[in-house]
Design a binder for these strands. Sequence first.
DNA 1: TAATCGTGGCG
DNA 2: TCGCCAAGATT
Length: 393
Amino acid sequence: MDKQQLKDDYGVELWDQDRIQAFRETVLSWYDAHKRELPWRETRDPYKIWISEIMLQQTQVKTVIPYYKRFLETFPTVEDLADAYEDDLLKVWEGLGYYSRARNMHTAAQQVVQEFGGVFPSNMKGLKSLRGIGPYTAGAIGSICFGLVEPAVDGNLMRVIARLFEVDLDVKQAKNRKVFQAIAEHLIDPDRPGDFNQALMDIGATICTPKNYHPERSPLKEFNSSYVNKTWEYYPVTSKNKPPTPYTYLAIIVRDAEGQYLMEKRPNEGLLSNMWTYPLIDVKDLDETGWRAVQPTAIEHLDDEMSGQVEHIMADRYNLPLTIRPQVDGDVVHVFSHQKWTLYLIVADLQVEAVTDNIPDNCQWIAPDEFSQYTFPVVQQKLVTAYREQTLF
DNA sequence: TAATCGTGGCG
DNA sequence: TCGCCAAGATT
């Protein structure tokens, strides 16, 4: 996309070549003086940069740092990662979120070994062919590790560019990304593309921030048309998020005679795939009067009717004869990006001489001292904590 | 294209 | 408390 089209189609007035050159020098000298010291900035090894870039997707730097170090200790090379068991990979990723990233990395590592002889591809086509590497990550790895003159358009870059050029396009709409990409392609420094990309990301993360933005403090203020025109509070344009859909579950806690708990491995696809939780019953699986009673407000007891239904479901799904305690032993609220879960802790007692070895394949009896060998989502860890707090008294 | 996919922090 | 957001990719 050329300058004329940017102006005609999107109302973006790009600068002349002299101003672009001055901008590059300002950005890079700021970076040389003020860049953040980060673990992945001590190397240009594409394997390590790749790990960092995947972890940094939608995740803050502070959160990533300990995971990055632990990951490289566990899987020092791409061959180690390619040969790993997926459960071991998931365990290292535990708590970081967006777990499909881990599974995609596993696939991509095998691609690197099998299709590229264990050597990371050094061009954009090869990088994008790897599972989990999209346009941003390909640009980041390409520019940082191989000096490719490719922008790395993430949320930071779009916010910075939107303010610099007063871009009236919704940064949350995927179709608008190409406009920011085109602008960045004109701006990027051809001699130091990796530093240029990281510099704009650092400026976006530390100065040109979403909130508490003070444009007068920015090294780019003289280039910033939204600052000159006093319109910065309108940029970037962002549409509203859809609120998370509410769900309500009963988390059933069953302990056998040996003190082990019934746990279930979630399906291979979808939310929290392959991770372990207590058995969860969606209250919509209860009959109409049942779940309507549970939905709106917090509950403290299950009535006889509901207890009977839960017992029936547990017998049906887990082949276990149980007696449900009607008392609710605490509740947990957990918000995902698109779902909001409310969970009620329900304790179930095994009936006398119950047979416990007919549970489904995706279920296991797990003792507390074995918990560290399994991967639990944060919502499950919250359930454990809530249960301990309740039963302490 | 719009929805899906986690978690932690902040105003 | 709630909505927003963070170095996005996939379908």
